[in-house]
Design a protein around this nucleic acid. Structure first.
Lengths: 348, 348
DNA sequence: TTTTAGCACTCTCGGATCGAGAGTGCTAAT
DNA sequence: ATTAGCACTCTCGATCCGAGAGTGCTAAAA
């Protein structure tokens, strides 16, 4: 299938390696010297010419070194990259941080984003885990002030959804508590659809409350849940290719615009299960603002039950091997944490 | 006190105005022509020389126009700037957005950050409102999975604090509910200190729960509460003076580093009450990374009860008049919303 | 047939040069 | 006190040039 000779693969790999190091076009001489290749620059030139014809390399101008093309990176990641394990000490360092952090989802998300950003020296993004199909476990309604109440929904699996709303009448806490208990008893273990079916049985306050619940659960059913945790945005600006800042600015914009971001993530999430790491090179056609960037994304959690997503956004010439390992490793840790939290409750 | 003649003040103002428009050194000719001044360029030159001597203007090099110095901006903001009201339609547009958003603090924060970023075309930051002294109103404990429970604290004033924790034993929901009811009855209206005093009366589960409460309340007593909402970071990159990206990167770093940010904010918050708008020019000595930037900050909420902070981070040459008005206006709206939510419950 | 040495050629990049333009400070006249 | 006039300074952009890096091609070597 792949019509590249071994030597061509080697050279492509080396060009990519060198280019990710230096951010500059790579010439035949440099390559031979730095990697002590057992062939002459001329040979390398010939091979590079071939790779250029095939679309894996580009020449910024007639007489400069070669730069890997989008296709080149894609081929490299797909066929040439050998998976490497993260070094032991790095792994220990990371897992240590997680296991000594308090057992709080929000903390975990922040930590994951922070670690990912530091390790990859790029921008990181993490979404909170949320159930693929939300089932109510417990409902609590608390009066905060006046007619304003806080509704807390605990889902099977431990996810928490909350919503503040204003009732049409003033209702004392005791009544709210009663109502919440009723609703809990009635709807425990049900999903949004069954709740809808059960609604006609309810009336007055309980009906209103259930109505709000539906809304909160609807949000929860979206492929990608609410918050997206970001970190390391400033890393993007450090890359030499973005020193002119225009490109970087576009990327920042995408990351800031929650709706765009969620769209992007959910589109990606739908492919690939937990464990697999997806690599989007050059925005993969989807998002023109990201044409200079690559993303390494992974899903974590319990497939079919609760999942979230995490990943990295960096320049196209990123060290894919290491980045993929890092993303995979942290996804693994989060999966572990989430699985522990969810345990073996029953579903469906 | 101010030893500037009226004419010098005028010229300083105009230089600043022109410089904020163009981001380029301002010359005497330009000034006379564009503002149809009733004097000759030579006169302007003399005055500018005087202003330079006094330290209000700088010359990038011997023969270029003048640029306002940090001192210049400071004098301008402190003495020369006349307060302007935001135009009617802008105000309506803004308030409309708030009053049609759901009554949820988190939504308000996001909205405020977003509006502020758009209006000022700079980076915005908003902290959630939180009580100056936290008083417990209601406690709820909900089992999420296994030994993990969610504790929800509702403070007097409506602020919500929550914490996930792991108990040493498995405890059924009914017991948790009972315990929470007990604690609520016992500690309602108390602050952290009184709770500490009351702790010896408790034991077992209730003691443990109260212990955690103390922690959550301790956080809550810090001058600046948890989350800081950011928006418009990419705006900073759009400014011509940051096209080389190094400076911009530093600023981004500060904003990303929550701890630094909170420190900065709390230092500023401690001065000045609600309503007053504070302007920090050139980082005001405090933070060298921000030497090229200015911040416009305001406190909102109910003084002495619940307050938060919001503001803008932009280039030193920002349109202070408009920015200050915007910040003040949005602070006013948030104050209104918070006051509504808190209402007239009693304190102390 | 494959590899490589040799070579002419191309293109970028950094530095040097230069003139135009903008702006200043000073002096002398108003 | 203001301003016209003028010499002077400094930046900025354009242009030019040479060095350097790298290529593609051809012909010889393996």
């Amino acid at each position: 299938m792949d019509n590249l000779t071994e030597r061509q693969k080697l050279i492509l790999s080396l060009v990519i390696h060198e280019y990710t190091r230096s951010a500059q076009p790579v010439g035949s001489n440099t390559l031979v010297k730095r990697y002590k290749l057992d062939m002459s620059p001329a040979t390398v030139r010939n091979e590079m010419a071939a790779l250029t014809d095939m679309g894996y390399l580009r020449q910024p101008h007639t007489s400069a070194g070669r730069v890997p093309s989008e296709e080149g990176f894609r081929f490299f990641v797909g066929r040439l990259l050998r998976e490497t394990e993260l070094p032991d000490d790095t792994r220990h360092m990371i897992s240590h941080q997680f296991y000594q952090s308090p057992p709080d989802t929000e903390q975990w998300m922040r930590l994951a984003a922070s670690v990912l950003a530091h390790q990859s020296r790029a921008a990181s993004l993490v979404t909170a885990p949320h159930p693929e199909k939300a089932l109510i476990k417990h409902v609590e309604v608390i009066s905060t002030y006046g007619r304003q109440v806080l509704m807390v929904l605990v889902m099977v699996g431990g996810e928490i959804r909350q919503r503040i709303m204003t009732l049409s009448d003033l209702v004392p806490q005791e009544v709210l508590t009663k109502a919440a208990q009723n609703i809990t008893r009635l709807l425990q273990g049900k999903d949004a659809a069954s709740i809808k079916a059960a609604m006609p049985q309810l009336q007055g306050l309980e009906y209103d409350l259930t109505h709000w619940m539906m809304q909160a659960m609807g949000e929860s059913d979206a492929v990608v849940g609410g918050e997206v945790y970001l970190d390391g945005l400033s890393n993007v600006l450090a890359e030499p290719e973005f020193s002119d800042s225009m490109e970087a600015r576009r990327a920042l914009r995408v990351l800031e615009e929650r709706s765009q971001l969620q769209q992007l993530l959910s589109r990606t999430m739908s492919g690939g299960g937990v464990g697999g790491v997806q690599v989007l090179i050059g925005g993969e056609g989807a998002m023109s603002e990201l044409s200079q960037f690559s993303m390494v994304l992974a899903r974590y959690g319990m497939p079919g039950v609760v999942t979230g997503m995490l990943g990295v956004l960096g320049p196209m010439r990123m060290p894919y091997g290491r980045t993929i390992s890092t993303v995979r490793y942290i996804a693994g840790i989060l999966s572990g944490l989430v699985t522990d939290a969810v345990g073996e409750e029953k579903y469906g």
